[in-house]
Design a protein around this nucleic acid. Structure first.
Lengths: 179, 179
DNA sequence: ATGTCCATGTAATCCGTTACATGATTAT
DNA sequence: ATAATCATGTAACGGATTACATGGACAT
């Protein structure tokens, strides 16, 4: 149940609407924890019930009103308690690897193509990481929170770099099979 | 809905009981797709309804009877069709990275410890990969299916190796923060 | 005209986890 | 004695995905 905590973490930065949060889960923190807008709205309702966030409606002209959520002290306490508990290993579910596992039963040209697509997706992610790093975290005198984000980003970059290499290698190995 | 396909893939190797499959999802194919025994049993019931597997009870002495599931032609056709469709990107959910993202609000000694635990878990996985590779896939003249499994395993090994390195690096960066 | 952005949600379904339940055999 | 292994499942709950729904503003 770490979606609750991930949302609270985002709100330590600044108060946000559900819409803002959904976008955040599509970009920055979304690099480490994915969530759809439906999940975000549902979880926000729960957080409000548990008094971990406070919500106020803000009127806007020409646009729908926003409901802005602010973390409470109880919310910050929840994050600290959560930070003391051990983390689960991320659970692996990768169809592409299952297809390699089943190479005999699978269409190999189709798999090659899917490998290519996957490589492009990881290249895209790597580019995003690089751009974020250059824009926000390349200066000196980083705050603690910036430093943490930089560490996470650094892990993301080296991981994507490695994944791209090993997918490219797999593509070569796969083409060797076809001859 | 790739659990169905992952089960079918396992059954292309040989007919298996739910218990066998659960163990397989805890080891070999479980390196790329995790599933609990409850999931396996529920999905097997569905596969039987869709006529993608056939199930027969085998009597045993001194042990509970086994229900052995065999893939049908329709089941093999399902795998082939599935192999033509694009793969989803694996969805990322890593609490540890979220904690780095929230470094300001988090207990740093606790996070350090959790990093250590995580590093050990990945070292364990890497050892398992190496042992499997040495035992089963280090000879020559591999069949197509063995070749596919070797490719998947090779990706697993280089990924784990890289993850361990970047977690160790993160530990150093975290200790620099504390001074 | 068409589509995208803003902003909120509900409903249905499916997937995943945790706990419960049974009961004999074999190893320490 | 105690625990692990073999072997099957059910039940309850919670998390995630997909589709549906609304409606104005603004750009092409």
């Amino acid at each position: 149940m770490a979606l609750a905590e991930a949302i609270l973490v985002c709100l330590t930065d600044r108060p946000m609407s559900g819409y803002d949060l959904a976008k955040t889960f599509d970009a920055s923190i979304g690099l480490f924890w994915r969530a759809s807008h439906q999940q975000v709205y549902r979880e926000l309702a729960r957080l409000r019930e548990r008094n971990l966030v406070e919500s106020t409606e803000v009127e806007q002209r020409g646009k729908p009103n926003r409901i802005v959520h602010t973390i409470t002290e109880a919310g910050e306490h929840t994050i600290l308690q959560w930070s003391l508990k051990p983390c689960k290993m991320p659970s692996i579910k990768d169809e592409l690897l299952v297809k390699f596992y089943a190479l005999e039963t699978v269409d190999i040209p189709a798999l090659s193509e899917q490998l290519g697509v996957r490589i492009d997706q990881h290249r895209g992610k790597l580019n995003v990481y690089h751009r974020i790093k250059e824009r926000f975290y390349d200066g000196h005198n980083l705050s603690t929170s910036q430093h943490g984000k930089l560490i996470a980003l650094t892990m993301g970059i080296s991981n994507e770099t490695e994944v791209i290499q090993s997918l490219e290698n797999a593509l070569v190995m796969l083409q060797d099979t076809q001859d």
